[in-house]
Design a protein around this nucleic acid. Structure first.
Length: 635
RNA sequence: GGUCUCGUAGCUCAGCUGGAUAGAGCAACAGCCUUCUAAGCUGUAGGCCCUGCGUUCGAGUCGCAGCGGGAUCACCA
């Protein structure tokens, strides 16, 4: 079992060994020539992987022991020590039955026999610090680029659906939705750029008691208002009537309480609530008049939503509507009953017993045969799978639904549905205000459209204050403000690990300094400016250039990008890319201070640095692109 | 109460499968624009990584217990 697993993970580099029977013993001979050749062919073998592979060969040669690559631990050398990468030898000490220092020393001596790669080493307390030849970086700089990377990334044959946003149609999108939407969008881009086929899906909750409340308030109080007649964006208009419903309802309840009912009874008996429920019944029976209003008001909401999505630069490949899926799970439940996986209680309700998995019993159909939330989610999961047959189905849903999603997957597994195993809940923490959770009743909900407006106007204000508006047409300026405002907003929400809850601090979110989107965008714009001024320049570099520490550091960072991208895909975590963007931008800004580019010491240095600029530029724009953030050429 | 989750600088967060003296950004203080965009850069200060025990050559990271926040345990969605 374990062996099989190792086999799957075993890197292809294994093939580089020749195993020879030599005087009764098996010797594993690393072939360095073919190894180096292999490295050249393999365009995107990371430097750390190259080093690990070299160490693997060295261990085989010195100790005659095969070591798996994942057993070799490589870190970047801490700045206070000399070297580029550090190998930790403690873990191998037992296996090789040698002291850590001895292993480090022996490996260091062996590896530096390949001067094409390693220029030196030192050993400190079991840590082997290795210095790499500059040519390794220069070769990387000459050959690699994002374009190469894009070309190298091949479809991995895995299809994944990402469901996100999934709004209710009774109110506009608010700040809490933004984290969901940006996460889902960024994840989709990341998966796409790591070789997956991606379907971006949105499951719209367009039916139910909530929309009936809006409809009812509009009928009673709307006076025929439409988005056109009022000039109010459709989703906001419908949201206003949802609020109106609650006001009217509250009035009725208060009246009933005054008439002597208890608050509980009053809430149940308020005629408005009964009317809403009656409306829901009529909707379910297909009453034409109800459906007409429902269609009309949902249409307004969609117009509003699409305007908002459009401003965010977000599109979906597939829309699902609960009005079309809410009955789906029933057949699944019937089948489960017949197979004896579910059971029916005396009152006719259907349940599944999950106590063997440490959970409770879960209701799947009410006594009267109607569905619950879980039922339709079961059906929708199957529908999605029937539609696309994806390997993985990601649900971007808040962590308040952890239990629900756990149960959903478990039930589908018990029903032996093929869609079950691919279900992955990308659970994210709630966005809170410094004062606590956003509460619609307390009016602390921050509206998504307002938030975008706010960020764009701050971008405008900052740009004008800094006097950076010259040379732009007014159209270019409004594009720029949009780019910066949304960049700031997206970055702010994506920079925190999704699974952690985050505090939305309005003061901090409007700051365009430091660990922010505009900081990265600014760095990008500066690089563009330098490259514009440089004009045409030589594209080939000498092999024997001496790199400065800062140049090397930048190249190291650039070289890591594909791995960063893979990591964020593997972890479903765009924050990894935010951190990388900031680090790269910061490092570049530092570099710029003591490395003149256009007035470099000589042509060679200038060419080298321009090339580095290009590499940083393309990495930054690609990385920002994964977050759904545009990079401005000027700002 | 059961289950899950989080606890790192004044605040917001990084810290990869355990690896060297725990890092950023805000905020504070001190500096840097005759030189490629100062939305920038440099420096100072700020820490019993919630507590305790355990595993280990080595623990912010893993295990157990406790303390403190949050989520969830609906014939709501």
């Amino acid at each position: 079992m374990e062996q099989a697993c190792n086999k799957r993970n075993r890197p292809r580099i294994k093939q580089l060994y020749f195993i020879v029977d030599k005087s009764k013993h098996f010797f594993i001979i690393p072939l360095f020539q073919s190894f180096l050749l292999y490295l050249r062919q393999k365009k995107f073998m990371s430097v750390t992987l190259q080093i690990k592979t070299a160490i693997q060969s060295a261990i085989a040669a010195i100790y005659n022991r095969p070591i798996e690559l994942h057993e070799i631990l490589i870190n970047e050398t801490k700045p206070e020590f000399e070297g580029d990468f550090t190998m930790v030898t403690f873990a191998l000490s037992k296996q090789l039955s040698r002291k850590p220092d001895d292993i480090a020393q022996a490996l260091g001596e062996y590896l530096t026999q390949t001067p094409e790669m390693f220029s030196g080493f030192n050993v400190i307390k079991g840590f082997l610090n290795l210095s790499l030849q500059d040519s390794i970086y220069l070769e990387y700089l000459n050959q690699q680029s994002i374009a190469h990377y894009q070309h190298e990334i091949k479809a991995n044959g895995r299809k994944v659906m990402v469901e996100f946003s999934s709004p209710n149609t009774n109110k506009p999108l608010h700040f809490g939705h933004l984290r969901n939407i940006f996460l889902g969008d960024a994840l989709s881009r990341i998966l796409l750029n790591t070789g997956h086929e991606v379907i971006k899906a949105n499951l719209i909750n367009d039916r139910g008691i909530h929309i009936c409340k809006s409809m009812l308030a509009w009928i009673k109080d709307g006076k025929g208002d439409t988005p056109e007649s009022t000039g109010i964006k459709g989703d906001h208009l419908v949201g206003d009537y949802y609020v109106r419903f609650n006001e009217l309802y509250k009035e009725q309840v208060e009246q009933l309480v005054q008439d002597g009912l208890s608050k509980e009874d009053a809430e149940k008996k308020a005629p408005l609530m009964a009317e809403a429920q009656e409306m829901l019944r009529r909707w379910e029976q297909g009453d034409p008049e109800t459906l007409e209003i429902w269609t009309k008001m949902n249409g307004w909401v969609y117009d509003g939503f699409y305007k908002t999505y459009d401003r965010m630069g977000i599109r979906f490949d597939k829309m699902y509507y609960e009005s079309q899926t809410y009955l789906l799970g029933k057949t699944l439940v019937e089948e489960g009953l017949q197979k004896g996986l579910l059971f029916r209680k005396e009152d006719g309700s259907v349940w599944i017993d999950l106590s063997s998995d440490g959970l409770d019993q879960k209701l799947l159909l009410r006594g009267d045969g109607t569905s619950v939330y879980m039922t339709q989610d079961l059906g929708t999961a199957k529908l999605k799978y029937d539609d696309f047959g994806m390997d993985t189905s990601v649900y971007v849903i808040g962590d308040e639904q952890n239990y629900h999603m756990q149960v959903l997957k478990l039930i589908l597994q018990k029903l032996h549905e093929p869609c079950a195993d691919g279900i992955h809940h990308l659970s994210y923490g709630m966005v809170e205000l410094p004062t606590g959770r956003m509460k619609s009743r307390e009016g602390t909900v921050v509206d998504a459209d307002d938030m975008m407006d706010e960020m764009i106007s701050i971008a405008k204000k900052n740009t004008e204050e800094l006097g950076k508006v010259e040379g732009f047409t007014s159209e270019e300026l409004s594009t720029l403000y949009h780019t910066l405002g949304l960049g700031a907003l997206k970055f702010y929400l994506l920079r925190v690990d999704p699974k952690k809850k985050m505090i939305f601090n309005p003061q901090e979110s409007i700051d365009f300094h430091g660990f922010t989107g505009p900081f990265v965008q600014y760095t990008y714009a500066r690089i563009c400016s330098i490259l514009r001024k440089a004009g045409e320049h030589s594209s080939t570099l000498d092999k024997d250039i001496q790199l400065t520490e800062a140049e090397k550091t930048l190249l190291k960072l650039c070289e890591q990008y594909p791995e960063i991208l893979m990591q964020s895909a593997k972890e479903y975590n765009p924050a990894v890319i935010c951190n990388y963007c900031h680090l790269l931008a910061k490092t570049f800004n530092g570099f710029l201070v003591d490395h003149s580019i256009l007035k470099a010491e000589n042509e060679t240095a200038k060419n080298l640095r321009l090339k580095i600029c290009q590499m940083v530029k393309s990495n930054l724009s690609h990385a920002l692109g994964q977050l759904g953030i545009a990079a401005p050429e000027r700002m």
